[in-house]
């Protein structure tokens, strides 16, 4: 270590892993940061943490029409896990997410790549893309209920029925297609959001590595896989994960369009929890359902986070 220039000294850790120690405060009291965080923390405690803990509490009790009964141990959970409807709901949700989210993801990324080229009318197009995202999900549900209404709905009358795509009834009453109609609505609503999020990410990429790749002779496809995709990975992972969680919890459009039917064909956990609570008044089992779904997500998100961190260098 005699004649190594200072800048060549082995860099222990590197800036990305550097731990920034909190500097001694500039005369501010120790509790000052906590004061600043307090409003958010208090709000979250009241509207999220306490109801959640209460739900956990409920799930361990026998409930009769909103009144606490005896402590039930894992009774509600046993009941839930032996309920075919619960497993059906999980299956529906997995199918819904597994089809809707990858399609939204790919359509969104493709659209973002198209948008990031200097195409004609881009500045007009972008505000339009915000419309589905800005609409309340309940309004989206009503909109498509009308568009796809049996026999007189605009799309039903003009497209679906002439082509005989969904049999005689409304598509929402079709056991085979109802779920796909819901998936279609979800894609309609959320693809533009994905597109805009990815578009913003593409705009933020540094231009010079792309220039370097162009000079070095990489073609557009090589540039996409060598540069765009790896540099976008953190954003893709975060947006994809958010969308995944959100899609699993979808409620409004299902509630409006199918109510979980026909039968239980489109009954996702959120809809089932609603029905258990307000139709069957089985609040104990509904709370157990909520807790189980939460545990599933907690585990899933942690695994996802670890994998994304190690394999993809995201986060």
């Amino acid at each position: 270590m005699t004649d190594v220039p200072i800048e060549d000294m082995p860099n222990q850790g590197g800036p990305s892993k550097a731990v920034v120690k909190r500097q001694p405060s500039h005369g501010e009291p120790v509790w000052y940061p906590y004061l600043l965080m307090a409003p958010a923390m208090i709000t979250l405690t009241i509207v999220a943490l306490l109801p959640f803990l209460f739900a956990v509490f409920i799930s361990f009790h026998e409930m009769k029409f909103g009144k606490f009964g005896d402590f039930a141990g894992f009774g509600n959970y046993v009941e839930l896990l032996s309920d075919g409807r619960f497993w059906n709901a999980l299956g529906v949700a997995v199918l819904f997410v597994a089809i809707a989210v990858p399609l939204e993801f790919m359509l969104g990324l493709t659209g973002a790549l198209v948008l990031s080229r200097p195409i004609w009318g881009r500045s007009v197009l972008i505000p339009f893309l915000f419309i589905p995202t800005m609409m309340a999900p309940i309004v989206v549900g009503l909109l498509w209920k009308i568009m796809l209404a049996g026999s007189w709905g605009l799309l039903s009358y003009n497209v679906i029925e002439p082509l005989g795509l969904a049999g005689e009834t409304s598509i929402f009453a079709s056991p085979d297609y109802a779920l796909f109609a819901l998936i279609f609505v979800d894609i309609w609503q959320w693809t533009p959001f994905m597109m805009l999020a990815f578009f913003a990410g593409l705009q933020a990429l540094p231009i010079n590595p792309f220039r370097a790749a162009a000079v070095d002779g990489a073609n557009p496809i090589q540039r996409f896989f060598w540069l765009t995709l790896p540099m976008m990975t953190p954003l893709l992972v975060v947006i994809g994960l958010l969308r995944l969680i959100d899609a699993f919890k979808v409620f409004d459009s299902i509630f409006i369009l199918t109510g979980g039917g026909p039968g239980t064909q489109t009954e996702m956990p959120s809809v089932l929890a609603y029905k258990m609570t307000f139709e069957f008044w089985n609040i104990g089992e509904a709370s157990a359902l909520a807790v189980v779904v939460w545990v599933l997500f907690f585990v899933f998100c942690n695994v996802f986070y670890q994998v994304a961190k190690k394999k993809l260098n995201a986060f």
Binding site: P209, R211, V215, G217, N219, W226
Partner: peptide, 20 residues
């Protein structure tokens, strides 16, 4: 010619390294 077809070895002032 396109940049890639010119056979240019170019050091960018801003380095333009591939960050990942």
């Amino acid at each position: 010619d396109l940049p890639g077809g010119r056979g240019v070895a170019f050091l960018f002032e801003s380095y333009a390294l591939y960050p990942h």
